[in-house]
Design a protein around this nucleic acid. Structure first.
Lengths: 239, 239
DNA sequence: CGATTAATTGATACTTCTCAAATCCTGTGG
DNA sequence: CCACAGGATTTGAGAAGTATCAATTAATCG
């Protein structure tokens, strides 16, 4: 079956991947990219499909070529807590493999997603044989550790309203906007609530509040940030 | 000035450090340890002294030889959010250096603390020249990333009571118990609240509740876990 | 286009925070 | 070593913020 959008599928060789410059592979040499290109395989996931399952032992990592996914942990009554999102160029599954622990968060595709799969053994081979790549991944995980710290402080100290504003800004930074200025990601109200860490109804009420204040506008699941400075002010209680 | 407790001060050579086996330096060769030993210097911090300051650019990392410290972010009205603790053998400051970002959390000594300081340049030298060490640090940061994820889910989904029980168990896992069975760490109620992410009064109230239920007992700032299975049951709503 | 799921709103209950006041304890200096 | 000042702990009362439950309307997807 032929893909509808050619650009959705990754090239055979990583060297020609358009995500390379913002990925962990950005400063590798041709020979190193050769190795990875030979080892990787391409996979695709339908919207809603689970890419990795919390508690499992992954056999490799994915580098997202084109798509969007959520990483989340399951709570007591099946309530998801979204930890972060991943999109083009992002590496997922590496945490579990490197720390040799079960997967700490399930990953589900939010839209049809194309990715490159690098088997565990190959990933280690490249990590161990290539200090530069290893350092890239190290930087990446240290950066994410910082983001996680911010999220911890937010959850502990900010109100739901403040966190909601923050999340909206994070969504924009992560996924950008479409031609019409809407956030380029469609989430259900429940998913927004699961990222903010609140009840769906609370998220809805506060979204309505922000709408009334003219800081955002919505059109079904599409959200447009109308007053980013205002949102930033609400969100940036500290930091 | 001569130290009161000789064992508090690290040895001149890392090879003889008693923390080595549980640190990121655990599987390094003699020559590699030589390098680090030559580059490191010993420092000490009094109880309450700030080791690193949020927002600053660290010039090196510390490996704690003997002591206890808290890592925390400052909230709006000066409320601290404790992200994690560090003790013997733990590496601190590495996240900021590796991700090339300002320090994300201040670090303050909870007791008199002795540490080895490794300047940034030396740290990079060892990281870059030694894949094994690099991988150790990578594993470390991936492990901490997993812990941070757990904390995010806890903060978002558990009640204060559940989180308090969880924190008590974490404190025990991190610092252990003294001869009398008390947690081997003395924190103010405020610090406990700052870890749980709640108001000091709430933490106090819930500690009293746990006391009445016979799950813990206290003696000033000393806390003894009397019923760990019970605490685990309260804490482990999910996971 | 119809069935199902999601979003919205209202009412109410519960959790947690804040403020205040009364001990208690800790660390310090004499 | 002891007394004391000042901070820490504790408890109560009331306010605020969120969650839950229920019912209605809107949107989405086959």
């Amino acid at each position: 079956m032929r893909a509808t959008h050619d650009s959705a599928e990754p090239p055979l060789h990583c060297q020609f991947c358009r995500n390379r410059s913002d990925s962990a592979f950005h400063n590798l040499g041709t020979d190193e990219l050769d190795t990875i290109s030979r080892l990787k395989t391409c996979v695709s996931f339908r919207k809603g499909q689970v890419i990795m399952h919390e508690g499992a032992r992954p056999q490799g990592v994915y580098c997202i070529h084109k798509g969007k996914a959520k990483l989340y942990k399951m709570g007591p009554e099946g309530k998801e807590q979204i930890i972060r999102f991943a999109t083009n160029g992002d590496l997922i599954g590496y945490r579990s493999i490197l720390s040799d622990e079960p997967i700490s968060a399930s990953i589900t595709a939010l839209v049809d997603t194309y990715a490159c799969y690098i088997p565990k053994s190959s990933f280690f081979e490249v990590i161990e044989g290539n200090p530069k790549f290893s350092l890239n991944v190290l930087k990446l995980s240290c950066h994410e550790l910082g983001e996680a710290g911010k999220m911890i402080a937010s959850l502990a100290q900010k109100t739901v309203r403040e966190r909601l504003a923050e999340i909206l800004l994070i969504l924009r930074a992560t996924f950008g906007e479409d031609e019409e200025g809407f956030l380029d990601i469609k989430l259900t109200r429940e998913e927004i609530a699961n990222m903010v860490g609140t009840a769906t109804e609370s998220a809805i009420r506060l979204l309505s509040e922000l709408k009334e204040e003219g800081r955002i506008s919505t059109q079904g699941r599409r959200i447009k940030l109308e007053d980013r400075p205002g949102l930033r002010k609400i969100a940036a209680v500290f930091e």
